[in-house]
């Protein structure tokens, strides 16, 4: 496509990327200790149990921190924010904040966000976030 970095799913992460292709953000929860975690793996990082479940997250979160890159890279025109989002369920993940000016004034820490999914290859949809209630 445009030379951008595209995730290559592994057996342990395939369910996550299958989920984003359906417009779902999937997390995992330990059936033993109830810990919710990310990135995906078939065991619990808190208690080492292999009995874990996949569930659909709310897609809601808050802007935890970010930087605004001033360099163009394939798929991204500067300035653009590289952000870390704290999900309602607890885990954090890296993402971008879309449908929002890429400025410190518009990107306020702790602002409420909701997930949106962007197709970046034939098979991969990247989870990104936009201000809650924003019109795409």
């Amino acid at each position: 496509m445009d030379g951008r970095e595209v995730p290559v799913p592994t057996p342990e992460t395939k369910h996550f990327w299958d989920g984003t292709a359906r417009g779902e953000l999937l997390l995992q929860r330990c059936d033993s200790c109830r810990a919710v975690y990310f990135p995906p793996r078939p065991f619990c990082p808190a208690c080492a149990s292999r009995t874990v479940s996949v569930f659909k997250a709310s897609g809601r979160g808050q802007l935890h921190s970010y930087t605004i890159s001033h360099r163009d890279v394939p798929g991204y025109k500067a300035p653009y924010a590289i952000a870390v989002v704290e999900l309602e369920e607890g885990p954090r993940l890296m993402s971008n904040i879309v449908d929002c000016p890429q400025t410190p004034e518009a990107l306020r820490l702790d602002m409420p966000l909701e997930a949106t999914f962007r197709q970046i290859s034939e098979t991969i949809w990247l989870p990104q976030f936009r201000p809650a209630g924003a019109r795409p």
Binding site: E5, P7, V8, P39, S69, V73, Y76, Y80, S95
Partner: peptide, 29 residues
């Protein structure tokens, strides 16, 4: 690592300046 390749690199990351800097706004706030 592969977790970095799958879950960080696709977001416009281009090396240490675009990664190491991310926590500081939280520190500043």
């Amino acid at each position: 690592t592969d977790m970095h390749r799958q879950f960080e690199l696709p977001y416009g990351v281009w090396g240490p300046p675009s990664l190491f800097t991310i926590p500081v706004l939280r520190f500043m706030q």
